[in-house]
Simulated scan of single mutants.
Amino acid sequence: MIGSSELSGSQLDRLIELSAALLSPIVAMFALILAIQSFRLARAKRKDDLFQQRYEFYSELETWWLSTGNAADGPKTLGAEWYDLRGPARKSRFLFGPDIEEHILSLEDKTHDGHPWVVDEAFERPFLRYLELRASA
Score class of each variant (00 low, 15 high):
M1A: 07
I2H: 12
I2M: 11
S4P: 08
S4T: 13
E6T: 13
L7G: 04
L7Y: 11
G9Y: 09
D13P: 04
R14W: 10
I16S: 11
E17K: 15
L18F: 05
L18P: 03
L18M: 08
S19W: 07
A20I: 11
A21M: 13
A21E: 12
L22R: 14
L22I: 01
S24N: 14
P25D: 03
P25G: 05
V27T: 12
F30M: 14
I33L: 15
I33H: 11
A35L: 14
I36H: 05
Q37G: 09
S38Y: 11
F39G: 04
F39D: 02
L41D: 10
A42C: 15
R43N: 13
K47L: 15
D49S: 10
F51T: 00
Q53W: 01
Q53H: 06
E56C: 04
F57I: 02
Y58E: 03
E60W: 12
L61C: 05
W64C: 10
W65L: 02
G69S: 08
N70T: 10
D73V: 03
A80L: 02
Y83N: 11
D84K: 07
D84E: 12
D84W: 06
L85F: 01
R86A: 13
P88D: 02
R90H: 05
S92G: 04
R93L: 11
R93I: 00
F94A: 14
F94E: 12
L95D: 01
I100N: 06
I100Q: 06
I104S: 03
L105P: 00
E108C: 15
H112A: 00
G114C: 00
D120M: 07
E121S: 12
A122N: 05
Y130H: 14
E132F: 09
A137S: 07
A137L: 09
